[in-house]
Amino acid sequence: MKRIVTLMLVDRSGEVLGEASPFEAELPWWQEVSGFGPGVQVLRLLRAERPAPPGGRVTYLAEVTGSFPGQINPVSPYGESLVKPHPQRAPYAEVGGPTASIDWATSVVPGVTAHQQRTWNLSAIWRLNDPTGRPVAWLKQVPNFFAHEPYALRMVGAAFPGLVPSLIADGDNGRMLLAHAPGEDRYGAGAEVCARIAAAFHPVQAHFAADPGPLAGIPDARLKVEPYAEVAEPFSASIPGLEALIEDLPSRFAAIAECGLPDTLVHGDLHPGNVRTDDAGRLTIMDWGDCTFGHPALDILRLTDGATGEGSPLAARDQLLADWATRWKQTVPGSDPLRAVSLMRPVAPLRAALLYATFLENIEPTEHPYHAADVPDRLSAAVVAA
């Protein structure tokens, strides 16, 4: 699916310079901005012709920070509307924001050049290369609702060295510097990689189940009816079965508790694309912004979403679940992990709907298309799963 990009350009003072000529981006995903050319830093999404990603015609606001290589076409005056402050705008989406973040990063790791990779309402990411072009570190910046990510990296890294990216430094406004993790992201990897991830992550969850004290520093997602009822209420009349699902949550949560699995560290988005592996067998789990203190079944349900292998994908998924259950039975004798997973199936999409609603409450309206369709979609999926 094609993504046709237009950049609305402003200078360092925020004055509108005009539009760059449209071009086709290499990837369809709206947040991917690598390869947009030197001399610009993409700030944020302005508009899109489609109601949701990926693809389509997309316009971004971008700051000219160097010598812009393309033609700049005049446009009708926008006045101050493009750079007018917004209380929910991330610091890295402001004019001058990327430059300030890069200056901070290069003061910590001198002699590197920054190459913008991604920017959207959940993060901005730059690759930092040494003079030979080799990546040595990554600059990541997150909004306030993900401000706990550096804490989570320190927490997990202290107990399980090498399993998470090494945190070089963290700073103001959600900035963090991460050491480069060798290997490649495993988007689309099948059951074998998922099995490795599950096996590597179980000791982490077992550790923090036994010692949950440090989890006070991350969001609390332990099961309570009220947050789910609130996110579902606006859609109860339009999604058949949703009201009944919410009304049943107290008994469902009681049954989940009877299964005996402890609350622990939940990664929140544990899929192969958030894991890097290398030829030496090293496995690095990335992107901890969604982590919470909650039920461990949420992660195995996320991990098994796309599990495939030789034969039936369902067979691959069931084997992953069986292995996961065996580990938890050894960790918590007398527990019933498979029943817990069955009961948690509709809770996982409910949790996703709640998370997307949180995003929408905390981002500026021009970036709502990233997530606006996700809340009703996940609520509908919860009804189906129930």
Rank of each mutant, 00 (worst) to 15 (best):
Q88M: 14
A372M: 11
L17W: 07
C194N: 08
A322Y: 05
V108Q: 09
A257G: 08
G183E: 05
Y151K: 14
A210P: 00
Y228E: 04
A348H: 05
P272N: 04
D377H: 13
P98F: 09
P110F: 00
M344A: 09
D336R: 14
L43C: 04
A105I: 13
A179K: 15
A105Y: 07
H115E: 10
A195N: 09
A353I: 06
E24F: 00
V75D: 03
N362H: 14
I168L: 15
L223Q: 03
K329D: 07
A229D: 02
A229P: 02
A348F: 04
V383W: 00
S238H: 07
N121Q: 09
A316F: 05
A216H: 06
V156F: 13
L314T: 13
F253V: 02
A195H: 10
D287N: 14
E230V: 12
S123L: 08
S101T: 00
V16L: 14
N73C: 12
W120D: 09
I239S: 09
G97F: 06
G183W: 04
S166Q: 12
P369I: 07
D220S: 07
D287W: 03
H86Y: 13
A232E: 08
G188V: 11
E226G: 09
D211N: 15
P22K: 13
W328F: 11
R378W: 02
S81V: 15
A179G: 13
R302D: 11
T326M: 12
A297L: 04
I168Y: 03
G260V: 04
R222N: 10
V164G: 02
A229V: 11
L178R: 04
V347Y: 06
N144C: 00
P262C: 13
G79Q: 01
L249I: 14
T113S: 15
W126A: 10
V75C: 15
K2A: 10
A25T: 04
L301T: 06
